[in-house]
Design a protein around this nucleic acid. Structure first.
Lengths: 191, 191
DNA sequence: CGCGTTTCGCTACGGCAGTTGCGTTAATGC
DNA sequence: GCATTAACGCAACTGCCGTAGCGAAACGCG
């Protein structure tokens, strides 16, 4: 029942991804040439295109392969959890070259298939923040009249906004300010 | 002292921009071909490149040319002002094709020159929101311990985040929720 | 008018993304 | 062993961005 014809070279994929990683590290998204990647991997261009239908999808696969998972172990204190989590997302974003994030979003906007993959790539961070926000709201740390989804957007959205639009740095201190702004002041909050 | 050699065709620039507007409307950023734009404008490709050094800069000039100013007349009520202003920014963002915004940010991240122009293109909206937030803070409508710049990011950032990353719609209702989240609840706020 | 200067249209080119066609190679099934 | 199937390398091709070189055209200046 297993494949009928000639099997795919099992090492080709990893060799291509490794070559692409080297290239994109050195020259960025624009400077990455599919032809050079294929040559460096010792593979014909057609072999590469058989695995990924476009340069964008290759890069998405590469980023998916390389990215560090943002670790998330929920603790007892939602405020501290949010501080850590938002800081970790900020650090993860700041680690990848800014133009790469911008190029991924551009590719995602152009092609629906790429868009799905890229959204899935970032969705788990969004989900993690949503969980902690829900817990914070359950403990009365947030304004009940504001939907939690809005609060999540106000924690993560500014990170992308700074990275992609204003170009300001993503520091842990900034992440902490975002959290402080979304949560109610600690004291004056017992009705 | 005025120009020495042959003067530039005064109509060429507008004809090129008009042709580019038609093309980008029909085919989007990727589908826009500089060669077709030149042909449609009745101009050689070199004439176009003498005015804009890249396709990205042409598109930036086009967007700068076409965009509607977000009108801003400060009123007496900062809350109402913010509602209107953030809704207007959301509407302006939602009006331009999402892939175009993404492509502009990508181009901005790649090229410093383009980056400056694109940032300038959006900076006035940021400034307008900053002004109103400052007034709201002066009237005690916000948490004093949060810098106004953070609040501005939490009003505008989620718009870009939704547009570029999650793909959710930018409705006036969403804009109002953002504002409500940033401003203190109307009543319970006299120490 | 002649000279220098700048823009013009035109053509050609290099580089890259993505596609196509072809002969070859490595597997499965009979 | 032999047909079938699919991946492989190779080469050529289209379309596009951006650049370079050319002669012609249009201006200011003396």
């Amino acid at each position: 029942m297993a494949s009928r014809g000639r099997p795919r070279d099992p090492e080709a994929e990893s060799r291509i991804l490794a070559a692409a990683a080297t290239e994109i590290q050195a020259r960025g998204y624009d400077g990455l040439s599919v032809e050079r990647v294929a040559e460096r991997a010792g593979v014909a261009k057609t072999t590469l295109y058989r695995r990924w239908p476009s340069k964008a999808e290759l890069v998405v696969a590469l980023v998916t392969d390389l990215r560090d998972e943002v670790p998330f172990r929920p603790g007892a204190n939602p405020r501290r959890d949010l501080d850590k989590l938002v800081s970790a997302v900020a650090a993860a974003l700041a680690d990848t070259p800014p133009s790469l994030v911008a190029d991924l979003t551009a590719a995602a906007a152009r092609d629906a298939r790429v868009g799905d993959t890229v959204r899935a790539l970032w969705a788990d961070r969004h989900r993690a923040v949503t969980e902690v926000v829900a817990r914070a709201q359950a403990e009365g740390l947030t304004d009940d009249s504001v939907p939690p989804a809005v609060l999540v957007d106000q924690l993560i959205g500014p990170l992308y906004y700074r990275l992609l639009v204003t170009g300001e740095p993503l520091t842990p201190a900034y992440a902490r300010k975002l959290v402080r702004s979304v949560l109610r002041p600690a004291k004056e909050n017992r009705p």
